[in-house]
Simulated scan of single mutants.
Amino acid sequence: MRMSTWIRQHLAALRALLVLTVVTGIVYPVAVFAVAQLPGLRGKAEGSLLERDGKVVGSSLIGQSFTDADGTALPRYFQSRPSAAGDGYDPMSTSASNLGPEDIVDTSERTSLLTDICTRSREIGAREGVDGRRAFCTPGGVGAVLAVIGPRSADGEVEHPADVVSVNELCPATPFLAEYRGVRVRCAVPGEVYSRGRFVPIAGDVPADPAVPADAVTAGGSGLDPHISPEYAAVQIARVAAARRVSVDEVRALVGAHTSGRDLGFLGEPRVDVLALNLDLDRRFPLRG
């Protein structure tokens, strides 16, 4: 290759580098920034931040907790959906728990997804004064799951149980069920392994439609969801109204003002923005001495 050809090729590459640097490194970012400053877009481009008394208190796109230092729900505020992102609503650790409906047995390392749901439902029921019972949960707030031990048939069923254990109720707890197929149910002994048994969830005698909505006890896929369902907001109205010493109708009207319908009329579900609602509560109904 002649030297002149080599030089021309490298000069062309250098020109391409300079042009692309200007276009992608200067022109494009400036254009995007300029568009983001247009009316109606600036707030979203800056993170949809919300302020109170001149201070940024959060984003309408990211959920947050409304609890005290011990993690106890503050009665004067609506509570958000649970989060599995880091320690909760952490944008640097956005994720789901990756646990599914088959995660029903507690281990020595962690509680199962089912027990987490049962515990939350029981706590929310007690806090809001509603029925916290739900299917496959014991009255004590753990997963109602039996390990049925005995010879199995070809389809995996245990037709004649030899032993039945309530695997999520550790001794000396009294099992939620006295007997199963004529066999006395016993509590689980710490350290024992019951994987040889067939795990059988027990629905129990509970309402078909739980009073505590699903979004109150399960985390969203991102862990950052700032919204709750109107149904979850509804069960919290009485508590918030009592804590702020205002009427239930006043709080209900404010919930309605912060409720959005389905996008374009058919996408998604109706939702309530918790942070915006709580900020409005502080503004309209500050705590009275």
Rank of each mutant, 00 (worst) to 15 (best):
A147W: 08
T138L: 05
N98A: 09
M92P: 00
F176K: 12
C171I: 01
F176T: 13
S97L: 02
R186E: 06
F66M: 01
G140E: 15
L113M: 05
G150D: 04
G150K: 08
D131W: 04
P75Q: 08
L74I: 08
A173C: 00
T115E: 00
R127M: 08
R110H: 15
E169G: 07
P161G: 12
A96S: 15
Q79N: 09
I104Q: 12
G100R: 07
P190C: 02
G156I: 02
S80T: 12
T111G: 09
R81N: 10
A96T: 10
A96L: 03
L99Q: 15
S97R: 07
Y180H: 15
G100W: 00
D116Y: 07
G182R: 11
A69T: 10
E123R: 13
G191P: 04
R81L: 05
A84N: 14
V183A: 08
A154H: 05
P101F: 01
E128C: 05
F176E: 11
T67N: 07
V164C: 12
V105H: 10
A144E: 00
R133M: 07
S93E: 12
S95N: 12
Q64D: 04
L146G: 11
A85N: 08
Y89A: 02
Y77F: 15
D103M: 04
E179F: 06
R127S: 07
R76S: 12
G71H: 07
D131H: 10
V130D: 04
I149T: 06
S83L: 03
F136H: 14
E123Q: 15
V167I: 14
R152W: 10
E109W: 03
C118A: 08
F78H: 06
V142D: 08
C187V: 05
A162G: 15
D68S: 01
A162I: 04
L177A: 13
S112V: 01
A147Y: 09
D131L: 04
L74E: 06
E169H: 11
R152G: 03
E169W: 07
A178S: 13
A147I: 07
G191W: 06
R134E: 05
L177K: 11
A126F: 00
T115P: 02
S121K: 11
A178Y: 03
L61R: 15
S166M: 13
S153G: 13
A154S: 15
S65G: 03
C137W: 14
G71E: 02
V145C: 10
D155E: 14
P161S: 11
E157P: 00
S60I: 01
S153T: 15
E192Q: 15
D70L: 05
L146Y: 10
V164L: 12
A144I: 01
G182D: 07
D68V: 01
M92A: 12
F136D: 10
C171F: 02
G141F: 09
S108Q: 12
V165P: 09
A188W: 05
V148G: 00
L113C: 02
P82E: 04
E109V: 04
